[in-house]
Write a protein that binds this DNA or RNA. Structure first.
Lengths: 230, 230
DNA sequence: TAATGTGAAACCGTTCACAGCT
DNA sequence: AGCTGTGAACGGTTTCACATTA
C-alpha cells in the first residue's frame, strides 16, 4: 500500500498491487490510442489485462480518473491520469551500474526511454568498457561513480552488478544522492529506509513459474460473471 | 494463493506472496550454507530478507518445515524443504525464444542453471544467429521451433521477443506442449488457462520504482516489536 | 530458557450488488 | 439504457500473543 495525492491534494491510498496494474493499463491504453481508439469501458480494459471489470473501476476511481456513466472512459484522459500517478510526466534521469550482458540489454532497450526514463550514464569496473558508449550512453569507470552522479544528478539507478558487489555499490549510490534503485542483483540490499527499492530476480521469477506449473494452479483470471440485474 | 502437497500428501495452501519469499529464503540459506552456517532462528532469517520473524515462522510452518523449539532451524533441512516446494529438485528444461540483447543476457546468466533451470535450445528469426550457439546453447530458426520443442520437450519457455510477436509465439509454444512461460515482452499473452505465465516487464518495474519514490513511502519493512512477555 | 508453531484478531484488497448519472 | 462509482460483504494474508516443546 502506498500513498498519493489526488487532484485536490488530499492524501489517498493506492494498493501496491494496483500500482502494478496501472502500468499495464497504461501500456494497453497507449497502444489503443496509437490505433485511434478514443474511448472504452471498464469491461474492455479489463479483458485486455485479464482482470475483472470491478477491479478496473475500483482502480480508476481510486486515482480519481473520471469516467462517464453509461459510456465509459476517454482514452486520452486515462493515459493522462495514470501517467500522472506513475510519474510518466516527470522526465526521470537514471544511472546504470554494471555493463555486463544484462546491463547492455537494458541500455539497448527502448521501452524505458519511451516511458520517460532516460539513462544518462553507465558505470563499470572493466577498463575495456570505460570510455566507450552504448546507444549514446557513455560508460564511466566505477571509481568515478560518486563524482559523476554528483554532477549529473540522476534520481534513479539500475543495479546490474554481480550479487557480491551489490550491497557495496548500493550504499555508494545512496550516499551519492540516488533516491531509488531497480535491483537486478540476487541480493537483499541494506539501505536507508527512505530509499525506494524494487527487486527483480530472474531466478526467483523462474522459480515462481515452476511453482505455478507444478501446483497445477492455472494463473487463470477473470472470475466474476458481472452482475446481471434480476 | 496456490496449492501444494505436504509431506503426507494432503493438500495445503501456500499464499502466493509466500512463494516469492520462498525464493528469497532459499537464496539466503544457500549463501549461509556455503559459508558454513549450520542453523539459524526465525529472527535471523527474517532480518536477511527484511520481513518480520512471524512471517518467517508462518511461511516455514506452512510448508511443513520443522524447526526445534528453543533452538531454530537447520540450514540444510530448510534448503531441502523449500527447494522441494519450489521445484528446485526437478531439473527443468527450458527453451528461450528471442536472442536479442535480453535473450543473450539470459543465455549468459548462470543463476538460472544454478537453480536447476537448463536452457536446452534457443530460437530466433535472424538467420545470422541460426546455427551459432551462446554458452553452449544452440540457436535454431524460428520456423523450426515447434519441431525442435517436440523433440527436446522442454517444460518451460522464456519469451524475449518484441511485443508485436509475443502473442503469436506464445500460442505456438502452448501448442508445442510448453507448460509455462516466463514473459519479458510488454504484452498480455492470451493463453489457455491451464498454462502458467509469469510476466516481467522492465518498464513496469521502473514505473513501480518511480511511484515508490514519488509517493514517499519507504519500502521500509520490519514493523513488529516481537512480543516480550509481560 | 528460548524459540517454535498456531489459534484468533486485525488488516487489506477484491468482489458483489446496486444506486446514481448521463 | 447502460455503465460508472462505491458501500458493504467476503476472503485471504499478516500480525499478535501465547501455549508448547526441546
Amino acid at each position: 500500500m502506498q500513498h498519493l495525492k489526488n487532484a485536490l491534494g488530499s492524501s489517498v491510498q493506492l494498493p501496491s498491487a494496483a500500482v502494478g496494474r496501472m502500468s499495464l493499463y497504461l501500456r494497453e491504453l497507449q497502444r489503443l490510442s496509437d490505433n485511434g481508439v478514443m474511448s472504452l469501458n471498464s469491461a474492455e480494459l479489463a479483458t485486455l489485462i485479464e482482470v475483472s471489470p470491478a477491479v478496473v473501476r475500483r482502480d480508476l476511481s481510486t486515482i480519481g480518473a473520471i469516467g462517464r456513466r453509461g459510456v465509459g472512459y476517454v482514452t486520452a484522459d486515462l493515459i493522462q491520469s495514470i501517467g500522472a500517478v506513475l510519474g510518466s510526466e516527470t522526465s526521470w534521469t537514471v544511472a546504470l551500474v554494471g555493463v555486463g550482458s544484462l546491463g547492455t540489454a537494458l541500455l539497448r532497450y527502448r521501452g524505458l526511454q519511451r516511458q520517460g526514463f532516460h539513462i544518462v550514464a553507465a558505470f563499470d569496473a572493466d577498463p575495456r568498457l570505460v570510455g566507450t558508449s552504448i546507444c549514446g550512453v557513455p560508460i564511466y569507470a566505477a571509481a568515478e561513480m560518486s563524482k559523476k552522479i554528483g554532477e549529473l544528478k540522476p534520481q534513479l539507478a539500475v543495479l546490474a552488478v554481480p550479487a557480491e558487489a551489490a550491497t557495496a555499490v548500493a550504499s555508494e549510490l545512496a550516499d551519492a544522492g540516488i533516491t531509488g534503485i531497480l535491483n537486478f542483483a540476487p541480493a537483499t540490499l541494506k539501505l536507508p529506509k527512505e530509499m525506494g527499492v524494487v527487486n527483480v530476480d530472474l531466478a526467483s521469477e523462474m522459480q515462481r513459474l515452476a511453482f505455478t506449473v507444478t501446483s497445477g494452479i492455472t494463473g487463470g483470471a477473470v472470475p466474476e460473471a458481472e452482475n446481471q440485474k434480476k
